[in-house]
Design a protein around this nucleic acid. Structure first.
Lengths: 151, 151
DNA sequence: GCTATACTTGCAACGCAGTTTCAACTGGTT
DNA sequence: AACCAGTTGAAACTGCGTTGCAAGTATAGC
């Protein structure tokens, strides 16, 4: 089955270049890993994948590139309820914010979009006169499968 | 002005004792700091305040007590959008969940309760068959004062 | 109240994610 | 081709949080 490929690979690269930032070999490598990731990766996983492409990438460069992307609002940083230590996880910023649900038993992360979430953010902006730049809603609990197994 | 004192001091202590946990001098000290805190404290601030009461409290004991309270669902752990490094902040779990708004300019943390938030959590539980134990909604952006000053 | 013991504490050493420093390097421009 | 501001890599460092273990103590049973 050919993938629909709705997202053009290289979107992050194009975005950074259009902002006048230098496109180095290392950045291209790291960005391609972030672009093609199918799940939430932490800095260490990102480093390992980048090194498969270019073994000379240093972990410092990974951290610096992640903070660059974060500063430019191109990726979101997640904690996923700190289920595995103090790591942070990263994902390309989506068109529409979503909620992360972390199962405390099996560790699975599910995502959920909701009009109510969008309306809630609208309410915050209006009622609190607060201009939202970034938002993060994470819930911890038990997923359907784990609840079924427990019974 | 006499404070209304709606919260009985010792609620956490009572809660832990009712669950059959030992009430040591150190725990009493740390719990009293958590109970009387008027703002979100990190582990280091908590330690310093506890030491003003009892100089022998160790930082390890603070961490262990915090994780105990967290395991029992009596406090919530916050990241406050990682505005000051990787610290975690703690607050007594409130009757009703609230949203934390962190101003990226002045660093102020505001709280906000909302029916929409409660309804959103209800929707997640229903639509995703996910049993929520703990939830955390944090938004980063610019507060009314900072937006006014910028103009 | 006294004793037994399982739980708790303190200290030191450790682990680990993330940051800083600075000399060497390089992408993009002239 | 040369320039240079921005970028990289290596090592050392920071700082939050954890672990191992010997010593201490809160509670239960007598």
């Amino acid at each position: 089955m050919p993938l629909p490929q709705t997202e053009v690979p290289g979107r992050l690269q194009a975005e950074l270049m259009s902002r006048g930032l230098r496109m180095t070999r290392q950045r291209r490598t790291i960005l391609s890993v972030v672009e093609t990731a199918k799940q939430h990766l932490d800095a260490g996983q990102l480093l390992r994948r980048a090194r498969k492409i270019d073994p000379h990438v240093d972990r410092v460069t990974v951290y610096r590139t992640l903070s660059l992307l974060k500063r430019h609002g191109l990726i979101d940083e997640l904690d996923l309820m700190h289920m595995q230590g103090e790591k942070h996880y990263y994902e390309r910023r989506p068109q529409r914010d979503h909620i992360h649900m972390a199962c405390l038993r099996c560790g699975k992360i599910a995502e959920f979009e909701s009009d109510l979430f969008d309306r809630l953010k609208g309410q915050i902006q209006r009622d609190c006169q607060f201009h939202i730049v970034v938002s993060r809603l994470e819930v911890g609990g038990y997923c359907a499968e784990c609840r079924a197994q427990r019974a």
